[in-house]
Every structure is written in C-alpha cells, then in structure tokens.
C-alpha cells in the first residue's frame, strides 16, 4: 500500500512539465526515503534524477519498496487536471497495475480521482558516484534559461568555460557567434539573485543546447540553478525543490576525437 499526500500539488505538476519532454516512460521508485526517479533520454545522452523526500509530504505511507512504470505524457495529462492550489495524493496497491491521483481543492469542496494504467519498463539504472566538481556555478535560474534560449537561436552547441574571472557561455552558427560572460556577483539584495562561482581549476566543456534548453523547463521549481562541471565529465544541472529534494539533469559532453 502506498499513499503520498502532497499539500503543494503544484510541485508535482511542475516536476512533470520539467521532465516529460526529455523522458517518455520512467519508473517512479517509492521507498522509506522518498519518491524518486532516475531515467535517461532515448539517446542515452542525458539523465534526470528526481528526489522528493518523504518528510516533504504531509502524509507518507509506503509499506514496501515499489517501482511504478509510468508514461510521463499520460501522467502529465492527468496532473494538468489538478488545480494549482490542489492537494495531490498518489495511491497504489502493492502488485497492482494502476496508480490513482486524487486532487482535493483547498476548501475541500471538490475531490477528483484519476486512475492511470501502469506499465512495465526495463529499468536502466546508472550508478553515479559522488564527485567533487572542479567548478560549481550557482546563478538565478531565469538568467541561465535566458542564456540557453538566446544562444540556441545562434548555434547548436554551447561551450561553458568557468574560471576565477567568471563563467563564459559561447556558441557559433551559420549567422555568426555569441559570448555571454557572467561574473561572480554577490552584492545583491536577495541571495537568489547572486551568481557564485567556486573554482578548483578552470573547466571548459561543450554541450548540445537542445538538452540544456530542455533542462530549463525546471526553472519554475527554483529561483536558482547550480551547474557543476569537471573536465571530461558530464555536467550536472540541479534545481532544488524547496524543502523536498531536487531535480538533477546530467548531460554527457561533446568531446574532440
């Protein structure tokens, strides 16, 4: 038996909007720790890892570990039927082949339940070791989204170069080239507006902008984004989900042969 009651149902709606274009089908894993997911895109270039900790739910009952295969597009269709202020409860029976999403309006005058068929998905779980990254950039998530969107109108790839001086985003295309440099800036009124760059050594990596733009669909989840890089390793783009956990995107770099 599984029953997870999330007061801030809009969080789950935003999570689905953030990942449904990257991943088609995925297993949601439920354990005593929380509600989580790890899934790669069909080309195995990008991976999303989601964690919503048990403590973040108003009620969290998970009698035994359960893995539920869902089509994210169908799940998104159902969650779109929930109001932004609704409380969402996820319910499933052990060994069952459906999951139920229950939506309660804030004043309890409307209660809906939507039952969705589960699917069997071969799980492809990657072991991602804890890594000390050589460059960690924290910046406003909207700024990062703006840069990725702007550069993708010029080129297909972005070179992200981080040094003590700042972080440079560069692209080239048929019509020309573009560079955006963000310097460390901590003298801001609100901490979420700061750009903070922690550097162990300079890092420069090349990525497909198509994926970066897809990751920025998580922008509504957090005011800030953290980009962690080491030379010749996948980048991690992390959006913290307030008091609940995180959504992390991993993207393999493009490397000169």
């Amino acid at each position: 038996m599984l029953e997870l009651r999330l007061l801030q149902g809009s969080l789950l709606k935003k999570v689905l909007e953030a990942i449904k274009d990257l991943v088609t089908d995925a297993n949601f894993d439920c354990s005593a720790t929380g509600f989580s997911l790890q899934a790669m895109d069909s080309s195995h270039v990008a991976l999303v890892a989601l964690l919503l900790r048990a403590e973040g739910f108003e009620h969290y009952r998970c009698d035994r570990n359960l893995s539920m295969g869902m089509n994210l597009n169908n799940m998104s269709k159902m969650l779109k039927c929930a109001g932004n202020d609704d409380i969402i409860t996820i319910k499933a029976d052990d060994g069952g082949d459906t999951v139920t999403f229950m939506f309660e309006s804030p004043n309890q005058d409307k209660i809906s339940d939507f039952e969705m068929k589960l699917m069997d998905i071969d799980s492809e779980h990657l072991g991602i070791p804890e890594t000390e990254y050589e460059a960690i950039i924290r910046m406003p998530s909207q700024e990062f989204a703006r840069i990725c969107r702007d550069l993708s109108t010029i080129g297909d790839t972005v070179v992200i170069s981080a040094s003590k001086e700042g972080v440079k985003f560069s692209t080239k295309g048929d019509i020309g080239s573009a560079n955006v440099v963000c310097r460390q800036n901590t003298s801001v009124d609100k901490p979420e507006d700061a750009t903070v760059i922690e550097i162990q050594q300079p890092v420069s990596l090349t990525f497909a902008l198509r994926y970066m733009n897809s990751f920025t669909k998580a922008t509504p989840l957090s005011n800030t984004v953290t980009v962690s890089m080491s030379n010749e390793l996948p980048v991690v783009v992390e959006y913290k989900i307030a008091e609940m956990g995180y959504i992390r995107f991993y993207l393999a770099p493009k490397i000169e042969e």
Partner: peptide, 14 residues
C-alpha cells in the same frame, strides 16, 4: 567537430 558522448561511457549500469 566535437563528438557527442553517451552517459554510459562515464557511468556504469547498476
């Protein structure tokens, strides 16, 4: 031109 790598080249399947 840089070549796109797969994540499997960096992380092992578990």
């Amino acid at each position: 031109t840089p070549v796109q790598n797969d994540l499997n080249e960096f992380y092992a399947m578990v």
